[in-house]
């Protein structure tokens, strides 16, 4: 009741042009927002601060000694360790190779399905091609581990039938990383495929027909029509995949856990191993901060490069 009367006087004040609003009234919106802001801070900034704090301490969950402040020591030891350098290289090889494969394959598949779109049964092909996305990554990893199994796995069984030597897919250090890349490619090419295909469907049919009349070869159709048409979408897919690939770790942990040796030892695996195998929380926190910074830098550079090219925010029609 009192509240309503106050509201009424306030409205009257506004209405008559007077702006004598109580301080309490002005604070009200801020107070109402406060709970959400606090929750947001607690959920986002909180863990981040905690992570930085952890990275500045030496702490092993197996020992009862309390965390000891060590300044930047954790970072220093991380940077000089060969493990870190190996992990960095493996991470980049993993991300770049998988990204390239997923894009090339996704594009080729989409172009193929789009070209044959009027054939009967194409809807089924499209659905089949997209099912891998639906599989949980951990399930995919376990499934592939079985298929890669050297002695009774289906892949080597088929190779045996043809009479090709059977490699130890996940146990051969030269092959392991690429075998894992294949799993990621299997799972995520459909994502690229789907978005590229959607982009192709969005191109008016008459544009392709005009291109046909203009005597455009199928290859030039892709480079001069399809790609320029949805450059922006491609860039966004590229960013999404890259972020995911730089952080990928379930598939590695579920198959080789970074091995054999350090063949598939990427930075996220290093973080995982340091934290949950060795329980060195300070070192793990430092490594994950470095990972975060790397991802951020890569993304920022890419977005810069792209917006300089005028792809972002450019009108399409």
């Amino acid at each position: 009741m009192r509240l309503r009367r106050r509201r009424a006087t306030e409205l009257a004040a506004v209405g008559s042009g007077q702006s004598r609003v109580y301080r309490g009234e002005r604070l009200a919106p801020a107070l109402m927002l406060a709970p959400s802001v606090v929750i947001l801070l607690a959920l986002v900034i909180g863990p981040f601060v905690f992570l930085i704090d952890t990275a500045l301490h030496r702490q092993n969950l197996f020992q009862t000694t309390p965390p000891r402040y060590v300044g930047a020591d954790n970072f220093y030891y991380l940077f000089i360790s060969t493990k870190f350098q190996v992990a960095l290289v493996r991470m980049l090889v993993f991300a770049v190779t998988a990204l390239a494969a997923e894009f090339v394959l996704g594009f080729v598949l989409a172009a193929w399905v789009h070209r044959l779109r009027d054939l009967p049964g194409m809807a089924i092909v499209r659905t089949l091609l997209t099912t891998p996305i639906l599989v949980a990554p951990i399930v995919a990893a376990v499934m592939w581990r079985f298929m890669y199994q050297p002695d009774f796995g289906v892949i080597n069984y088929i190779l045996g039938l043809v009479g090709i030597p059977k490699p130890g897919w996940l146990s051969d250090p030269d092959i392991a990383l690429f075998a894992i890349i294949a799993i990621d490619v299997w799972q995520w090419t459909p994502f690229v495929f789907l978005i590229v295909l959607a982009g192709m469907y969005a191109i008016p049919r008459s544009l392709y027909e005009a291109a046909k009349l203009d005597g455009t070869s199928p290859w030039r159709q892709i480079t001069h029509l399809t790609i320029p048409w949805f450059k922006r979408v491609l860039v966004i897919v590229l960013l999404l995949r890259l972020i995911d690939l730089l952080r990928a770790f379930e598939v590695i942990v579920a198959t080789t856990q970074g091995g054999p040796g350090d063949a598939s030892y990427t930075l996220p695996v290093l973080v995982w191993e340091t934290a949950f195998v060795n329980f060195q929380m300070g070192d793990a926190a430092a490594a994950s901060l470095v990972l975060l910074v790397i991802v951020t830098i890569v993304i920022t550079l890419l977005i810069r490069a792209i917006s300089r090219q005028g792809v972002v925010g450019q009108g399409r029609r």
């Binding site: 005597g215 001069h224 399409r316």
Partner: peptide, 24 residues
């Protein structure tokens, strides 16, 4: 053919649109 929606290539200039066939 002149299409009802013109079907001009949106990312090319008018000149590039007109000469695409010759360049092909």
């Amino acid at each position: 053919m002149v299409f009802q929606d013109y079907a001009l290539y949106p990312h090319m200039t008018a000149a590039q649109n007109m000469t695409f066939n010759l360049r092909n």
